[in-house]
Design a binder for these strands. Structure first.
Lengths: 346, 346
DNA sequence: GCGCGTTATGATATCGATCTCATATGATTG
DNA sequence: CAATCATATGAGATCGATATCATAACGCGC
């Protein structure tokens, strides 16, 4: 069908192996022959077929990306898009390609992973989440297949390459920020607690409260899980509490915006009646009204570093399993306000 | 290294070709042998190596996705994420995999495409944009390589498979919607006019004005291009016009929200002082305040259909080059308001 | 002028699967 | 019971590249 190395060899009157050597620019071939062969390649419109090369070199120059269940909340979330851009960028620099897993259920994703790993379609894998009860990561460990996680591994962190923020610290800092503003009743709205990141951020939140000698009230800790409890309900509950919060730490920009909507529809004034901080600094944080103060987790960098680390690992399989922590930055916008010193009658 | 078909053959005491036939569940192999071979595969932990198969079958069961330059505005935009989800979903149903091109410049993208097409890494390609001055589509045509576009081709539509909305109609309808609400001065804020979609939506907008016997004022037609003119500037300009608009058609939810922010910061009340419609019905439309009325372009379906069409084409290469039009729906929310019958003095 | 080391190239096996063609075996039939 | 045929399996070529080993050609020193 298309032009192969043999066609080139025949026309150029050399052996296929010579053509192969010209392709890899081997120093063992004379300049004269190289020129001749290259001319023929040009004339015939030759282009290498990677599949042939892959078979012998046992390397695909491709990395696989595994995301969590994608039905509603993964691609949807701009955070993931940014991650993907970062990965994509790093891959391109190193001339690697990207192979994307899809799949709507955990089981489907797992099968896809097995298929791409065992089927030798990728050289390594980036896992874009960290959660307990996950089959993918243990599987990759068992196979001894090169992989990098975005997010801190649930266990055996020492044996695993990962790229992450210091989520405990980030959450602590941003809670501190609210405390500095005078808030004493601070609520926390997290995501799916199966994920490591959710637990870390709650932990940081609690540390900040403890540090600030503020009482921890479980009634102020809520969850928004995709589909399950929605913002309206959570807001409802938070406002019912006697002595309701004046500040909220929300672990995701998207959810933060949802909550803001719910609050305004209840007649609260933002940021005067409720100070809010989000996480991730996605583009939507800039768009809300008031603009959202949020923790920039530098998702692009997170993605970029994860790909770079994986490629490093592929190049030197025996390298030490380093982990990379990407610093976070609080981006101050307009969604926070010093606590009003109301309740004069007290 | 890993277990191959030959290892299985040796242990099971059959020929490699027999094992291959068992894999493809050929009816020419007895049930007894199949059971025996399968048992050995199980025991040895055999898994097919796709690269071998690809080489002989000349098919990768993989489709490539080409997006426009990704630096700022492609993955960023939830519209693309939804498209990707739709593609991903359809691919998974048909057991196809996804190969993603990256690249920060047009030239880099073009090279990636050549690489994946000539290098035989994918069976077909989905191009997620339609623009003039594009090298990718003409190239794919020249190679006679199977591809599907999302968006109407700039030319030679009859020879090209594509999936699209009727953007002219959609834009006309949504402009009509504003006209029905009594608006007579309506502005249009589009995107990069290199893209076919931008031109179509402008066209529909103009048709609606003409139909409604409204005068077309070029001063009310603006553009927001990624990075270039920003919302504040555009809003500034629009409000400077004598007899400024009371309604705006904005061809993208993201830009619509940017404009809304700019308007409120100028002290306008929404939707009373300005009615706004967006496009795409991305998740951010739901989050704005007031919630954005927008044209649902059904991006998930767009992606889904494009993948399905491509896979159809791959299965029957001589099939007629059909095109699919996905209907649009206006999603009414709270960002539009009947025109106030002010200017009593008139 | 013979032996030897270099250099440039060729011949061939190989990667892991599939596919075509050949063949052994057993069943069917006149 | 020989001829014929269907069935189940094996042998070997093949896909398009790379890599190893062999070898031809050449120059050089003694």
């Amino acid at each position: 069908m298309s032009v192969t190395i043999k066609d080139v060899a025949r026309v150029a009157n050399v052996a296929p192996s010579t053509v192969s050597r010209v392709i890899s620019d081997s120093p063992r071939i004379s300049e004269r022959t190289k020129r001749k062969v290259r001319k023929v390649m040009e004339e015939l419109g030759y282009h290498i077929n990677y599949n042939g090369r892959v078979l012998v070199s046992q390397s695909t120059q491709t990395i696989g990306i595994v995301t969590k269940v994608s039905t509603v909340h993964s691609f949807d979330n701009p955070f993931f898009s940014e991650l993907l851009r970062g990965i994509s960028d790093a891959c391109h620099e190193e001339d690697y390609s990207i192979y994307l897993t899809t799949g709507n259920t955990e089981e489907a994703i797992f099968k896809e992973v097995v298929k791409m790993v065992q089927g030798k379609r990728v050289d390594g894998v980036i896992v874009l989440y960290s959660r307990e009860d996950d089959k993918v990561v243990p599987y990759l460990r068992d196979c001894n297949f090169p992989f990098v996680m975005v997010g801190k591994p649930v266990n055996r962190a020492g044996e695993t390459m990962f790229v992450d923020n210091d989520n405990i610290l980030a959450s602590k800092e941003v809670t501190d920020y609210l405390i500095q503003l005078g808030h004493e009743r601070i609520g926390f709205i997290g995501g799916d607690s199966h994920f490591e990141v959710a637990r870390d951020r709650l932990e940081g939140f609690r540390q900040a409260l403890a540090n600030g000698h503020l009482e921890e009230d479980k009634n102020l800790q809520k969850n928004i899980q995709s589909g399950l409890a929605d913002a309206d309900q959570v807001v409802e509950e938070l406002l019912q509490v006697k002595d309701p919060p004046t500040g909220l730490v929300i672990t995701d920009d998207y959810n933060a915006l949802t909550v803001m909507r719910a609050l305004t529809s209840k007649g609260l004034k933002l940021p005067e009646d409720m100070s809010i901080v989000g996480f991730n600094n996605t583009m939507i944080a800039r768009l809300s009204n008031p603009a959202l103060t949020t923790v920039d987790t530098q998702s692009f960098q997170l993605g970029h570093e994860s790909a770079r680390s994986l490629i490093d690992l592929l190049n030197r399989p025996d390298m030490i399993k380093k982990s990379v922590i990407i610093p976070t930055v609080i981006v101050e916008r307009d969604s926070c306000h010093p606590r009003k010193t109301i309740k004069q009658k007290d």
